[in-house]
């Protein structure tokens, strides 16, 4: 069978994996839900080396500390949906994972793979952006492994493009303490979420003091080459009373804050409408929480 793959390895440690990456162009695979699917469909070509990350313990685990939340890159979408600490401290993220794909895909797919693929219709990056997330990247320098951290906003450079260097492995996603403990909600287009690629989505995290919305963070997905924050809509809502009039204004501002594409899946007009409606609905949900 032709695959374009000449060599294969399953490194036992991060150090072994970063060393293996120094030897030439490689495809990194974790859950495989994107790499395997796209390769089988002929839309993706494997690099000469295939590196399977499944045994690397340094890339596992969900840890909550004073610094914030650290989610290992091999954490499956199912765990993000079900983990009690994530549900409590990063509600918007757990909600987003609930809305992603099917049980079977969530049992395979990982947060690291999802972030590295950087699809414009990705769900997870929208709420991660809302939570000011950063990513940890590991690379080999000589016999050592060097780590760097970069804000997700800088990591996502375009449609299916990231700032990851070819010799780097994304090891974890981190969320700072300041973004934790907020209410959160996520809505995306579609009637059957397991089958629907996101046309437009809205993630919001905020605190509600009485009826006053504070620490408002809003993100949109599917309407730009990468997930995006919505600073104008955030500013409009920050410190305001959650009234019907405010929600209407927020929807209007949200619609005006984006310049979405028209493509085979939806027109720009429809994407704009969805963003307005979802912004209002997510904020509506906060009142009932």
């Amino acid at each position: 069978m032709l695959s374009g793959i000449d060599s294969y390895c399953e490194p036992a440690t991060l150090a072994e994996a970063t060393q293996a990456l120094c030897e030439g162009p490689a495809t990194l695979v974790a859950g495989g839900t994107l790499v395997v699917r796209e390769a089988q469909a002929g839309r993706f070509s494997y690099a000469p080396a295939l590196i399977n990350l499944r045994h690397i313990d340094e890339m596992r685990g969900i840890e909550l500390s004073d610094a914030g939340l650290r989610i290992g890159a091999l954490t499956r979408l199912r765990e993000i949906n079900e983990n009690a600490q994530i549900r409590e401290s990063a509600t918007v993220l757990a909600q987003t994972a609930w809305h992603m794909a099917s049980t079977q895909v969530r049992n395979l797919g990982t947060i690291g793979g999802n972030v590295c693929w950087a699809s414009p219709s990705a769900d997870l990056t929208v709420s991660l952006l809302v939570l000011d997330a950063a990513v940890e990247l590991a690379s080999a320098s000589g016999n050592n492994t060097t780590m760097r951290s970069i804000a997700l906003a800088e990591f996502l450079t375009g449609s299916e493009q990231t700032a990851r260097e070819p010799n780097e492995i994304l090891t974890a996603v981190t969320v700072p303490q300041s973004a934790l403990g907020l209410r959160g909600g996520y809505l995306k287009s579609g009637t059957r979420i397991a089958l629907d690629t996101t046309i437009a989505s809205v993630a919001i995290a905020a605190s509600l003091e009485g009826t006053i919305l504070r620490q408002v963070r809003i993100g949109f997905g599917g309407v730009a080459p990468t997930a995006m924050r919505a600073p104008r809509t955030e500013t409009l809502i920050e410190g305001q009373q959650r009234t019907d009039a405010l929600l209407r204004d927020a929807a209007e501002t949200a619609r005006g804050e984006i310049d979405p594409p028209s493509d085979a899946r939806a027109s720009a007009w429809y994407r704009r409408e969805l963003i307005g409606v979802f912004t209002k609905r997510v904020l509506d949900g906060f009142a009932n929480a």
Partner: peptide
């Protein structure tokens, strides 16, 4: 089922 978890057999590498 892989270790009790349902998955799509078409998306999982056999080596896994």
């Amino acid at each position: 089922l892989v270790d009790g978890d349902s998955i799509n057999g078409c998306l999982m590498l056999a080596v896994n």
